[in-house]
Design a protein around this nucleic acid. Structure first.
Lengths: 185, 185
DNA sequence: CCAGGCAACTTGTCACTGCCAAGATTGGCA
DNA sequence: TGCCAATCTTGGCAGTGACAAGTTGCCTGG
């Protein structure tokens, strides 16, 4: 915890993950460099490999962390399904780095128990939010779940990709509030 | 066209783009290597740079090509809005490499006229498909357009990311046909 | 108190990549 | 025919991920 770093960093793993989030938010996951993260943390170029094995290992840890953050966001969004959807979009925008990695297969090992467990927690949270909504518990619950997930995920992804026209505005949550209700009118 | 390659390849630009599509479909955009593409085409390691400038230049050309393919797919899907949505999903699955690059900002220069023009053609095709649908020309056409784009884009993205549960099945178009109508019931 | 074991980190190296500069080759056009 | 511009090659540099082997320091058991 002291300012002068001894031989042992003390919290390298956490520091590397935090730096990775910043770096990805700035330049995207493709531009991420383990050596750059090591420099930011003031350690040698091979130190990250000790904690994460390789680059995919680091992104795997990041994805797992992201699914847990998403689950928390969905749970804090209250009982309203619209608010859960807005929460999903808010998570994607606020935790852009996590979100981009989470849904980029090939960047990390998404079959590791560390990841699958966190992803299951997030999908369970989404499922609960949908189950609480009377409108949504329609004839085909699975299709309803898929449609809800699709519309919020699609909106979030399109927003982040910059593909949406300028008329949509500058506030993603407001825009999402206008779009999501069309599913449940 | 001859089997023995002369000094001039003859169709290098097209060959590189085709190889890039294969390579990305196999290993994702992050693992793409210009030198590997050059090897596949049987040319020197610096040949790609002549046609595309740099890696982002190649991906820019690929994205533009993708938006044109998408516009064509949407136009061929007929007048039904559901079919246009299914066409969107079909495009994403069949042209996975193009799709992944198109909506990955930071990988290419999406403000170049080459790209913006193609993207405008694709959005125009989607807009026409929606305008043809009587249900969809509701009170707020912009929100309707956004919701439609979001649900098909979200479903396609989730499908490609492998995040969907196994119960959804193995055929993306069939699954999409069950999900998309929930928007317009 | 201290021996030794283990986790955290370093140093050194290799193959590979993107990018740049300079040169070689060729097809087409005046 | 001669020249020129587009196309492609050769060579080289800095940066990267991964691996191997060594170093440091903490911590525990006796």
């Amino acid at each position: 915890m002291s300012a002068t770093k001894a031989y042992h960093h003390g919290d390298l793993r956490r520091a590397l993950l935090a730096s990775a989030v910043d770096a990805i938010a700035e330049s995207g996951p493709a531009a991420l460099s383990l050596r750059d993260l090591a420099r930011r943390a003031g350690v040698s170029h091979a130190a990250p490999a000790h904690h994460f094995g390789d680059k995919a290992g680091l992104l795997t840890a990041l994805a797992a962390q992201g699914f847990d953050l998403l689950a928390e966001e969905l749970r804090q969004s209250g009982t309203d399904l619209l608010e859960a959807g807005v929460g999903y979009v808010r998570f994607a925008v606020r935790h852009r780095a996590h979100f981009e990695v989470m849904f980029a297969p090939g960047l990390y090992r998404r079959d590791l128990p560390e990841v699958t467990a966190a992803r299951d927690r997030a999908t369970a949270a989404l499922r609960e939010a949908i189950a609480r909504n009377p409108d949504a518990s329609a004839s085909d619950p699975q299709a309803t779940r898929l449609a809800t997930w699709s519309i919020v995920h699609g909106f979030a992804t399109l927003w982040l990709s910059g593909a949406l026209p300028a008329e949509v505005g500058t506030d993603p949550e407001t825009a999402a509030r206008n779009v999501i209700p069309l599913l449940f009118r």
